[in-house]
Design a protein around this nucleic acid. Structure first.
Length: 189
DNA sequence: GGTGGGATTAGCT
DNA sequence: GCTAATCCCACCA
């Protein structure tokens, strides 16, 4: 079953938790690509200096203020894209940091021009390359084909680890990164 | 109209 | 561990 919009209307931290273990699917003309979400980060509003929404709505981050269950994709470092999922709270979203490749693995290898399955999707920009996603998928409804998230059995709370977020310069003290424990596909650092 | 930094990555040392 | 690649956009003037 495709996760309904209501799934995304919960508190952002809850959604970040619940997304772990779910299947992110992209149906392309080349074939279906999918991976299990193993690592997420919550970005809040208005008191989170690390969030793109910290200074209010701009042209770049307007998706974060849009409907829940839609994508917010941004371009950074001159060459990379990252995927966020907008939640019910205005200006908040969940960053997808890593996937465990499940479907279309051979195609992912071609897209990434790499052969190691472990490093195919273990970073926010890597999974974008693997699933053939870019800025054209910004503000897309994740409850519809060809890009959506499939429900999976819920994880036990004991399987979920928490840490500080990665790669940011402000708001480092907030424990808003969540990952599946003992999973080889999280981006360790 | 100019500028600086960024939710990164791969490849080299 | 260090760094180049590389560009959009917010911000200030």
């Amino acid at each position: 079953m495709i996760l309904p919009q209501d799934f995304y209307k919960e508190d952002t931290k809850i959604v970040a938790h619940h997304l772990l273990g779910k299947l992110l699917v992209h149906e392309t003309s080349q074939g279906t690509l999918a991976g299990k979400i193993v690592e997420t980060e919550a970005y809040l509003y208005p008191n989170d200096p690390a969030s793109h929404s910290f200074r209010g709505m701009t042209k770049r981050n307007e998706a974060m203020f849009g409907p829940a269950g839609h994508t917010y994709i941004y371009f950074t470092y001159g060459m990379h894209h990252c995927l966020n999922i907008v939640t019910g709270a205005k200006g908040e979203a969940v960053l997808i940091r890593a996937l465990e490749p499940m479907i279309g693995v051979e195609l992912m290898k071609q897209n990434r021009r790499m052969t190691k399955i472990k490093t195919l999707c273990n970073g926010p920009s890597k999974l974008m390359q693997s699933l053939v996603l870019d800025k054209s998928h910004n503000q897309v409804d994740l409850t519809k084909v060809p890009l959506y998230i499939m429900d999976q059995p819920s994880l036990d709370e004991s399987q979920i680890g928490t840490s500080f977020r990665i790669g940011i310069s402000k708001g480092k003290d907030l424990p808003l990164r969540y990952f599946i424990r003992d999973n080889d596909f999280v981006s360790v650092r």
